[in-house]
Amino acid sequence: MKDNLSKNKITRKEALNKIGKYAALTAIGTFVVLNPKQAQASSPPDPGGNPFD
């Protein structure tokens, strides 16, 4: 049982590397989703207007 636990352990440096990669991917994903130019281009010209006009 103890051998099984020690196999799955990683060092602090490895953990920080993994967290850094996830953080970078999250930042890129957030930027792509919330990119203001792209959001502005996809919004309707009059977002508060009456759709039945």
Rank of each mutant, 00 (worst) to 15 (best):
P36K: 03
K7N: 11
L16G: 01
M1N: 07
N50H: 02
D46K: 06
D53F: 00
A24R: 12
N4M: 15
P36R: 01
K9L: 15
K13N: 11
A15W: 14
K21V: 15
K2V: 08
T30F: 13
D53H: 01
P44C: 00
D53E: 13
S42I: 06
V32H: 00
A39C: 06
D3I: 03
K2E: 12
P45L: 08
N35R: 02
K21D: 15
T11H: 04
V32L: 09
N8D: 14
A27K: 08
P47E: 01
S43C: 02
M1W: 10
A24N: 07
G48V: 02
N50L: 00
P36W: 04
I28H: 06
T30V: 13
L5I: 08
K2R: 13
T26P: 00
Q40P: 00
S6D: 14
K21W: 09
L25V: 10
L25P: 02
L5G: 05
K2T: 08
T30A: 12
I28Y: 08
V33M: 06
Y22H: 11
Q38T: 09
P45M: 04
V32G: 04
Q40C: 05
K21G: 10
V32D: 00
D46Y: 07
G49S: 05
L34M: 07
L16I: 13
G29N: 10
I28N: 05
I28D: 12
S43V: 00
T11S: 15
Q38W: 13
Q38G: 03
D53I: 01
K9G: 10
P36V: 01
S43Q: 06
L25S: 11
